[in-house]
Design a binder for these strands. Structure first.
Length: 576
DNA sequence: GCCGTTTTCGGCCCGACTGTTTTCAGTCG
């Protein structure tokens, strides 16, 4: 049974093999673009194949549609098999070495018969590589470095890891006397769930000074590139960081450019061309003019192009440009809209902070309500609460509320109930009835079939006492794929049942995926941002959940963290 | 390979840096 993942892999391999075969770069690009387009989980490939409507998707034409149909019905693509016949399988792997692309892979294959990373490594060591035309000693060294790097790191980092690396660099650059402005750009600023590298954009009249400071900063392991305005370093953490310096008057353009995404930029530049303008990282230039239209902020750039301001999180070429054109972008929720947090663990199960700790934190942060949700009784590994412990915790919450209520902080009595293998919740009805709210989550039996897992979760979200569906897929970013479930079907069921869908804000999870947040909203779901906190510091993960919500076009009215405690409690109560 | 109120052919976003070259190709973002 073909899956989306398998299809994308096949198309990606097509792109690489076509490149190796020397195909037109735009043809290669068309396949890469198709991979990106079809990676959108809200596109129902099976349905479009059945209806013969794949070409309705912008960017999918007759040629690629045929390949998709063939793969979906037979599990293979004839042309892909033919291409595979032309090159040994190891050649594709060579193109994954940083700095080593299809052209070089083809050259070493044609000239030296090399078709594996191991063989390439050997040739780089024994001097054969540097004898090739267009190659030399430096290239051989780069190859060895690239191979070592590829082996050491999978190449992507979680967003929290990336931000932790970026923060001290940002602070150091901000403190530099020659720096007027500096921001982290790229996937960090767009709040993607992972990042390949860290991009900084800096406004300075003295780029050489700033770049020198950048490449000699603590934590820099090696300098991989340094020109007049751009420097790249490898950090000890293994991440690459790039700094680009521009004139202060160019800063907004550079920031927009390096924030991306690449696909969003392509669309903006095309839009500029359509209007007789040329857009690059230095400015927006009327035909034949050397002088850019002025922009002190990105808002100005968007306005010059006839667009409403597009927040960085939305710049993925997923409809934001069309919406900005019609001034129909949503008013995204912000940190200031958030008055409540839920899905918090205490020492009663596997958390660190006490009820008192949570109340104090909320008071300090101006948060009005905190929803406690320890693990339920089946979660023995996490110290799940037996019914008598649940009742004791309720009394403790009453006591904390008596103290903190007058100061404007209220704790809610919740639970993170395991979804049992048959889809039932983890307590008898009389215990369930006593909770203010219930987060239902899967913590066991990840390997059920897609049908079984989906049915299990569908039953749980339909339960009248389930307030929130916790981390829908159980994925751990860069570590473990989510369990097999039909997410759209579950989201539609949540919308029907009025079950709120959690955006788990833990940066290891960020589950619901941002690409599905929009589908959830369009289906009519409400959302909650759950820090899933086990320590006080875990509450700061709110920022990542907020990023996911904003990336999914969420507005404050649809995210229950922005509701008063009374409104949230009433919603949970009526649902019962 | 995709696309089209100029177009069914001929375009397709743009620039920095590196390494190998005496003027440019490859890679990357």
């Amino acid at each position: 049974m073909p899956t989306r993942t398998h299809l994308l892999k096949a198309l990606e391999e097509m792109a690489t093999l076509l490149e190796l075969a020397g195909a037109n770069t735009f043809k290669v690009g068309a396949y890469s673009k198709a991979v990106r387009i079809l990676g959108d989980e809200t596109i129902d490939i099976g349905a479009l194949v059945a209806a013969g409507k794949l070409t309705d998707i912008d960017g999918i034409g007759k040629g690629i549609a045929e390949k998709v149909v063939e793969f979906w019905t037979t599990g293979q693509i004839t042309e892909l098999d033919e291409l595979r016949g032309q090159f040994p399988p190891g050649l594709v792997e060579l193109t994954e070495i940083p700095g080593f692309g299809a052209k070089k892979a083809r050259a070493v294959f044609d000239e030296l018969g090399i078709a594996s990373v191991a063989a390439l490594e050997e040739a780089a060591r024994d001097g054969r590589l540097e004898k090739l035309k267009g190659f030399a000693k430096k290239t051989a060294e780069k190859v060895l470095e690239g191979i070592a790097l590829m082996r050491k790191h999978s190449g992507r980092f979680r967003i929290d890891v990336a931000w932790s690396a970026a923060q001290p660099i940002l602070e150091a650059l901000r403190a530099h006397p020659a720096v007027e402005r500096v921001e982290a750009a790229g996937s960090l600023r767009r709040w993607r769930e992972t990042a390949k590298d860290i991009d900084f954009v800096c406004a300075t009249p003295r780029p050489a000074d700033v770049m020198e400071a950048f490449v000699t900063m603590p934590g820099v392991e090696s300098v991989t590139g340094k020109g007049d305005t751009k420097a790249s370093v490898r950090l000890e953490s293994g991440m690459q960081a790039d700094l680009r310096c521009v004139e202060p008057s160019q800063f907004a353009y550079a920031l927009a450019h390096f924030t991306g995404s690449k696909e969003h930029n392509v669309r903006l530049r095309q839009r500029a061309l359509d209007r007789g303008l040329k857009l690059n990282e230095y400015g927006l230039f009327p035909d034949g003019s050397e002088e850019s239209l002025p922009a002190t902020a990105e808002e100005d750039i968007h306005r010059h192009l006839g667009l409403a301001f597009i927040a960085p999180e939305l710049r993925e070429d997923m409809g934001e440009i069309e919406a900005a054109e019609k001034d129909a972008l949503p008013t995204l929720l912000t940190r200031n809209d958030i008055v409540g947090l839920m899905h918090l663990h205490t020492p009663a199960s596997d958390g660190q902070p006490s009820l008192q700790d949570y109340a104090e934190w909320a008071h300090r942060q101006g948060i009005a309500w905190m929803g406690i949700a320890d693990h339920s009784q089946s979660a023995a590994y996490a110290g799940g609460l037996k019914p008598d412990v649940v009742r004791r915790q309720w009394s403790e919450i009453d006591a904390v509320n008596a103290e903190w209520g007058p100061k404007g902080v209220r704790l809610l009595k919740g639970i993170e109930s395991d979804i049992l293998v048959d889809g039932a919740l983890d307590y008898d009805d009389d215990v369930l009835a006593g909770f203010d709210f219930i987060v239902a989550s899967v913590h066991s039996r990840f390997n059920l079939s897609e049908d079984e897992q989906t049915a299990r979760i569908l039953r749980a979200v339909a339960h009248p006492r389930t307030t929130i569906l916790g981390h829908m897929t159980g994925r751990l970013l860069l570590k473990r794929d989510g369990y097999a479930v039909r997410q759209k079907e579950i989201l539609e069921a949540c919308a029907r049942a009025g079950t709120i869908v959690e955006i788990n804000a833990n940066p290891h999870r960020l589950d619901l995926d941002w690409r599905l947040v929009r589908f959830a909203l369009e289906s009519g779901c409400l959302l909650s941002i759950g820090p899933d906190a086990h320590e006080i510091s875990g509450l700061d993960d709110l920022r990542y959940g907020l990023g996911v919500a904003r990336k999914g076009w969420a507005t404050a009215d649809r995210v229950v963290n922005c509701w008063s405690a009374e409104k949230f409690l009433e919603y949970a109560r009526v649902k019962k």
